[in-house]
Design a protein around this nucleic acid. Structure first.
Lengths: 338, 338
DNA sequence: TACATTGATCGAACCGGTTCGACAAAGTCC
DNA sequence: GGACTTTGTCGAACCGGTTCGATCAATGTA
């Protein structure tokens, strides 16, 4: 049906290898035959068969993107990471195989050992990520967007959530807050071992203790009406709290409406500070001061490094664990107290 | 590096073809050799090479998912369609190649004519969709989630947006509303030819006219602060409106907080009715009556049909244009007036 | 003039699967 | 006991690319 390189060769009156070399430029081809080949290609609408090329070169120009859509995760948040990965990959000539199979280990094994992908991008990373085991046996490199304790040997890119927590606590301490509420990711995220959740909370607790502040962490919910109930409970449990720190996408998205409904003015009655990206803030009209999570930068850097490791492993050097520096974006939702 | 079928054959002491037949079951293999082969496979950790298999069978077991993330689209809304497509594909043994290249025509041509995919799923369909042209020349079947005027020859699955509009207008008319505001998708969606936008608005206008109702359509925005400004303007332009119909994901997501802020009580001061899915309602805590958009059903049906067309084209029969019946989910945000 | 060098091309082998036809051994039938 | 079918296996060809080594003419050099 579709034209093959043999068809092109016949029409152009040359051998198959000549067509191949004309296409790849790996050997000199005379100007004249090159144009004849080009004409034949256009006339036949020839496109190299991806399977055949993959077989011959052991390269697919496809990256695997491994993620899960968990019930308790806020899907729109995940999307922020998919986007930059997708566009960065494309910019480098790679397509993206999106793997959402709930059987994580099998999905990784299947796609890597069948050589469907040249490299793996892992989202939704946990402290003890089961996907790393099959990836160690794989011939393809992998990069984590997130951090895993068993991630030695892999490049990792993540926000420095510990530093993010310290930044926030410092900020509130400087404003005189002594009693603050922390809404964390849902309990299930901790149960799964979502490392960003632990790292943020532990650092926040530690830092607040150093200041002698009261900091009350509460698991947030990912769905209504749980979100509202949880907020009610958290605030009721800390009646004198002057600030709330929200490290939970679903909760922060619901917060403006919640505050309105409860008649809580921000920042007059309550200082609010979150952890989310500029894009997320725009999509959900969030007027809150926050630590920027920079999904674009993370996704882009991660994919760049992965592709470097695929194409020039000697240049890539030792695996890198990069925690990008968080920055506080002041949108005026916190104010001094006392 | 990785084990090949030849390695398995050698270890099991049989020929390559025997291994292949043992795997596919296409010819009888004695129980004894079958187990010997199975042992060899496990011992070597053999997985068939996807490229080689694709080359031999002209099948990749990969579906292409073609979508764009437009600035003016509300990304979380798009995700609702990606999810069911992904899981349905996986349930049938297909992986998903996510193609977000802004050069639509080229992306389709490249992935289909190189035989990377066995079929195509189109999202973000427009009235005159440029992707259909290259798909007509392709050997792979395609399915649209959405509706295109130039879509003859392809299976299409979409909500019946015309009927959705009529359902809504009828509902409001029955409650005695005579003056209503309609927030439509952003202007850019119309400019691109997003057919759902036209179909909904035209039907709404037509139906309202039949009742002699006043219906004032306004283009919604996809980002703040445009959303709020536009709502202000729309309501100011219809000071006597008793109901608002929102066919715009970004606007409806921002609406609860907007109403609170403006002190508008729903449904006492204003009846609200939207067009969104159950999932979306949950994710954004939307308390509004709405026409259900059923992205799960659409995605699932579309992928099922595509796979049928791939595996048993004779059974699939003539192309189908299926508009699924909308249903009104009453969440109590509308009430009788007059 | 003889000889190495370079440029352009070709043929063959190879990547790792699948599938067709052939064939030997065993089983069935009269 | 011979003819015929069935069962189980093998070898070879093929899918459509890439790449290595060889060939041969043209060019440069001693």
């Amino acid at each position: 049906m579709a034209a093959t390189i043999g068809d092109v060769a016949r029409v152009a009156g040359v051998s198959r290898s000549t067509v191949s070399y004309a296409l790849s430029g790996k050997r000199a081809i005379s100007e004249e035959t090159r144009t004849r080949i080009q004409e034949a290609i256009e006339q036949l609408g020839f496109t190299p068969n991806a399977g055949a090329r993959a077989l011959a070169t052991s390269q697919t120009n496809v990256l695997g993107l491994y993620l899960q859509f968990e019930e308790d995760e806020f899907a729109p948040a995940m999307l922020q990471y998919v986007l930059p990965v997708s566009t960065t990959a494309r910019d480098h000539g790679y397509d993206l195989l999106m793997v959402t199979d709930p059987d994580l280990v099998n999905a990784v094994r299947r796609t890597t050992s069948s050589a469907m992908v040249d490299g793996a991008v892992l989202l939704d990373v946990t402290y003890d990520d089961v996907r790393l085991e099959p990836l160690r046996g794989a011939t393809q490199p992998a990069v984590l967007i997130g951090y895993a304790r068993n991630g030695e040997g892999f490049d990792s890119f993540d926000l420095d959530f510990g530093e993010a927590a310290r930044l926030i606590v410092d900020h509130l301490a400087a404003l005189g807050h002594r009693d603050i509420v922390l809404i964390t990711p849902p309990r299930q995220v901790y149960d799964r071992g979502g490392s960003y959740a632990w790292r943020f909370r532990d650092a926040a607790v530690e830092r607040a203790a150093r200041y002698g502040m009261r900091l009350a962490p509460h698991y947030g919910e990912s769905r209504q009406p749980g979100i509202v109930d949880e907020l009610d409970a958290a605030l009721a449990a800390s009646p004198d709290a002057t600030a709330i720190v929200v490290h939970n996408d679903a909760t922060i998205a619901a917060l403006p409406s919640y505050l309105d409904k409860r008649g809580i003015r921000c920042p007059d009655d309550l200082s609010v500070i979150g952890v989310f990206s500029q894009d997320f803030a725009q999509a959900f009209s969030l007027p809150f001061t926050a630590v920027e999570t920079s999904p674009d930068a993370l996704g882009q850097e991660a994919v760049r490094r992965l592709i470097l490791r695929i194409t020039a492993p000697e240049q890539a050097g030792a695996p890198v664990v990069r925690f990008i520096e968080p920055a506080l974006v002041d949108r005026g939702s916190t104010r001094a107290v006392g």
